[in-house]
Amino acid sequence: MSGAAPLLELRALSVGFRGGAIQAVDGVDLAIASGETLAVVGESGSGKSVTALAILRLFGREDGVVARGQVLFQGEDLLALPEAALRQRRGRDIGIIFQDPGASLNPVFTVGEQVAEAVRRHQGLATKPALARALELLREVGLSDPEARLRSYPHQLSGGMRQRVMIAIALACAPKLLIADEPTTALDVTIQAQILKLLQALQARTGMALLFITHDLALVAEIADRIAVMYAGQVVESGRAAEVLARPLHPYTRALLACRPHRGPSGRVEFAPIPGAPPRGRFPEGCRFAARCALAAEGCAAPQPLLAVEDRATRCHRWGLLA
């Protein structure tokens, strides 16, 4: 990371549900500077989305959320901020693209109304110029026939189109930080490339920081400066993206890279899961990956702190065996 103070810094962030009975995120430290792209990857259920939602405290009352630690945005702790002040940050300073595009669009308003509303709210534009800007945004995210799409309702769009409408809404406010939770899962590679170009151009122009949650490792290699790998609520490895992908220092990262579908000797595409499943809700004392790890040894039953290795970090005391 550069020498400048980070735009966003998570310090020992922990999030539990049902008053803490279910532990989802456990002591996460992350930092991201303006203009930087940090990718968060990890197994399904490892706490990526909960980490993202905790930054803006986007939980329901019924979730019974208990959050500890600090979420420092421009030096200010968002966790300690009253709801009204936090609402100001949402959408204006920090934009978010949710993992579920279908669930976050309003079914009774047209696409145009929803994008224009976001533009109006954050840039204080009148209705006409807001609609014009909305049209431009829809064009930028690659929707064909954007004029017609303005008048469509969400259910009249395809999955990938809805996802791009979500992206347009998040970009409408030109945020300082964009949290993008699996923003391109429904998109084919050509459109995905177009979206990435758009995000990168925006970063170059406005210095927007990008927190990019994804399971697509090829994508990470392409866009991320740094990467944080999560497993069972913790960051188990972090560092410069190219280095982590080329030379992982945690057995989970290595195992994850190895199960990418690949062409085997027979010429057929092969794939195999990491055997076993991660602990969920309640975590063991020691290394959380040990039960599935090929390198597990006695010392792994003890708690594993995040170890600094040059400018990288790993939560495995046996990392030397991988290096």
Partner: peptide, 12 residues
């Protein structure tokens, strides 16, 4: 798109 939201291990 039954595996679009899954990491490569769970997807496999």
């Amino acid at each position: 798109e039954p595996v679009s939201a899954l990491d490569v291990s769970v997807q496999a």
